[in-house]
């Protein structure tokens, strides 16, 4: 392990204990996506997971969300083994996950309505949250009438309105152009810092991982993905994701992590080509 982060003094919001996920593949073959993976996300900690494309990052996140039961091992939420949907977590998906038949307001208030809040009260709260993510005035638009960045904001509000203790984010900004993306990253940091949630952030973009996180976990190429390095990111906060990329410490960290990640990316690339 290269420069492992110091053991967490703080409580663990989320922990993976020797999680293995195997899927039945074509012709009865077993495909092991994730193998024997253990790491933790401390309370209020922002942890990014980077790894080559197709290495099983999303699988890990689905385990944390309770959408997928691991073949062996377990996920712990606040020290309790997870079974069924993770009620403490909010999940932001890589793909568009908004309900196309609901307006922006309807989408943001959905979670509150599912929890039994009255329609009017839920709508009022949703209106506040839409304003907070910069979408005041777009309440009645349907998802197809919003730009990609706006849809991501709606998804962010949809998740945050429920005030989840843990945020699971699966390459949420990967479909956005670089400018919109940096804006969204800064907004995410601002929202996060006002009310420190525990975050597990999946990305294949190392720069994004470093500029956002307290800690970066590097995964090996699949199959049988497992963590091969952990790096504490000791950059000062508050950060501006565009500016911090220019700081010498950022470049140092980037070099160190890339050194570990590079060979895995090449492996993943070679596998993808086969």
């Amino acid at each position: 392990m290269a420069s492992a982060a110091p053991a967490q003094a703080r409580a663990r919001a989320l922990a993976f204990e020797r999680v293995t996920c195997a899927f039945a593949g074509k012709g009865g073959e077993r495909y092991t996506a994730v193998s024997d993976t253990s790491f933790v996300v401390g309370d209020g900690e922002f942890v990014s997971v980077v790894g080559p494309t197709g290495c099983g990052k999303s699988t890990l996140l689905n385990v944390a969300a309770g959408l997928l039961a691991p073949s062996s091992g377990r996920a712990l939420v606040d020290g309790e083994p997870l079974s069924g949907i993770n009620r403490r977590a909010g999940y932001m998906f890589q793909a568009d996950a908004l309900m196309p038949w609901r307006s922006a307001l309807g989408n943001v208030s959905a979670g509150l309505q599912f929890r039994g809040m009255a329609r009017d009260a839920a709508a009022a709260r949703a209106r506040e949250w839409l304003a907070r993510v910069g979408l005041a005035g777009f309440e009645n638009r349907y998802p197809h009438q919003l730009s990609g960045g706006m849809r991501k904001r709606v998804a962010l509000a949809q998740m945050l309105i429920l005030d989840p203790g843990i945020l699971l984010m699966d390459e949420p900004f990967s479909a956005l152009d670089i400018q919109t993306r940096q804006l969204m990253e800064n907004e995410l940091l601002e929202l996060w810092s006002s009310n420190r949630k525990s975050v597990l952030f999946i990305t294949h973009d190392l720069e994004e991982a470093i500029s956002l996180s307290d800690r970066v976990v590097v995964l090996s190429a699949g199959p049988g993905t497992h963590p091969i390095g952990e790096f504490a990111i000791d950059l000062p906060r508050p950060r501006d994701v565009a500016e911090i990329r220019l700081s010498p410490r950022f470049v140092e960290l980037h070099e160190a992590i890339w050194h570990v990640l590079k060979s895995e990316v090449l492996k993943g690339y070679a596998q993808g080509k086969r």
């Binding site: 977590a89 999940y91 998906f93 996950a97 908004l98 959905a110 979670g111 599912f114």
Partner: peptide, 15 residues
């Protein structure tokens, strides 16, 4: 039905 939309609704707490 899009599996992502479905998973999202489940994460939002839909019974």
């Amino acid at each position: 039905v899009s599996p992502v939309v479905l998973a999202n609704a489940r994460m939002l707490g839909a019974s």
